[in-house]
Write a protein that binds this DNA or RNA. Structure first.
Lengths: 278, 278
DNA sequence: ATGGCCATTTGACATAGCGTCAAAGTCAAG
DNA sequence: CTTGACTTTGACGCTATGTCAAATGGCCAT
């Protein structure tokens, strides 16, 4: 029989751990002195402790280990537990690898630009959202700006504030550039079948922004024609982290457009649906 | 200005998180209503929040992030922090991979044997230990057993209990089997230059068991001639987990040898120094 | 204005697996 | 018998939130 310290030394664990396992009922000392409370461990308990450590090493929680030790579980049960654990481990491995790539891309970016760019790419998922928008094709950036402003103004005027949420522009990239295929409209706080007539034959109709599981996003000030910077940032990030673009880009005007044209200080969130590159 | 719920929704975080970041001083609301305590966030705080999330994603703790955001740190500083993080991540990645291999070897073992073998392989590191031993070469297993018994008995008789620790056998595997090159002796609780004469010209001399960083170990009952089972277990484990043997094997008799020959219920720990296979 | 229904506040407790510390009692060697 | 090393219980700490509860506040429809 060993006192806790020596037993701990043999097994290469801390005394605290042994007391903790005792408390959990995982490993009761072979004997406890009634007078002093001293715990005495038999060397024959070492295999049990080693089982605990081995299972812990496999990623099981102490809570899970308890029953396993006593129930003399069947190989099939153990196998399925381990298979489950393996799946979890593989997932977490992949996540860690992604994190590692993120870090490496930041390092590479610093080495390339000599500085951090202050635009942080965030991955999020978005739910499906009711959307009241008009589809249109524009030939020039000027036309886009005019359309957006028109939709914004009419939307602010004609859609009830309780229903209206944020101005959103969806850009489908017809590989032949120079033309823009856009949806321009407002996301809604709840589904609605309303339609809004603006400027002649243009009508906002109820549709839906589909949900997207992984979306690479950045937020930039809406002012300045620096939008290409943000796009570049996201693009490089997507490449560096082994993703690829999986759908139309969205621009979300996070602040109600107020004040004079030129939106001082407005913020725009750019969203790219992405998937892991093949 | 948004209330906490809406801001949380935009940024895809929980309100609890925002309150917590407020509490830590990481992200103070742009305004707090004196009357109600309501937090109001400006959309202009979103980039800061995104920075927090991005740095968190890179594996930094909130505590580390705080200073970074305010100090407008130099690219070089950031770079070195990230490099450090990368190293940590790579290490933890390798550990996870090892865990994954452990799990897979257990699964494979169950599939092969139809059961778990109850001998748990534990990896530990051992410190250098003073050792009082005799080197000898034996031609047969019988001779080994006799030698061990002799050393055990004489050691128990001649070495002071306070100095004597455990009976240890070190086996150097001269690839040409059939002969055993052994050190047999006792580990000591503290350094000593004592020497012990036993049976004629055999003398235990002070030496040292070197430290080993990674040691694959199992504990088995000392009785029964099942030792080969344990060796087999460790051997398969070492192969399955992409290690290789890196030095002489040790057998440690964990219990003072008491009672009649045949050591009822004694426990022996078998240790193999290992290294990652090339 | 009023009722009703969310949203928000603070505060507390919980999580996993121990590390660390404090005060007090025990053991063993010299 | 002393002294120093060891052990006991109990408590708090750590990370980054989730969850719950009681008490208000805000907002929409009547």
């Amino acid at each position: 029989m060993f006192r806790i310290g020596e037993f701990a030394q043999i097994a290469q664990v801390s005394g605290r751990q042994l007391r903790f396992y005792d408390q959990l009922g995982l490993l009761r000392p072979a004997h406890i002195d009634r007078q002093t409370g001293y715990r005495y461990y038999s060397i024959r308990q070492l295999p049990r402790l080693n089982s605990i450590l081995a299972l812990k090493e496999l990623g099981l929680s102490l809570e899970q280990i308890g029953p396993l030790l006593d129930r003399e579980l069947s190989p099939a049960e153990l196998r399925s537990m381990l298979t489950l654990k393996r799946a979890q481990l593989e997932r977490s491995l992949r996540e860690e690898e992604a994190r590692l790539r993120h870090i490496e891309s930041r390092i590479a970016q610093i080495d390339r630009d000599g500085k951090a760019d202050g635009l942080d790419v965030i991955v999020k998922s978005v739910p499906p959202t009711p959307f009241l928008a008009v589809n249109c094709t524009c030939d020039s950036m000027d036309e886009v700006v005019r359309m957006v402003r028109t939709v914004a103004e009419e939307g602010m005027r004609q859609i009830r504030p309780a229903l209206r949420d944020k101005l959103v522009v969806v850009a489908r990239n017809d590989a032949d550039s120079e033309r823009f295929d856009l949806d321009i409209g407002f996301s809604l706080t709840r589904p609605s079948n309303a339609s809004v007539r603006i400027a002649g034959d243009l009508v906002l109709r109820a549709t839906e922004l589909p949900d997207v599981e992984t979306m690479a996003t950045v937020v930039r000030p809406g002012t300045n024609a620096e939008s290409h910077t943000s796009f570049g940032t996201v693009g490089r990030w997507i490449e560096a982290n082994h993703y690829e673009i999986a759908g139309p880009c969205r621009e979300i005007f996070l602040e109600p457009i107020t004040g004079p044209p030129g939106f001082e200080g407005a913020m725009v969130e750019i969203q790219f649906p992405i998937r892991k590159a093949a």
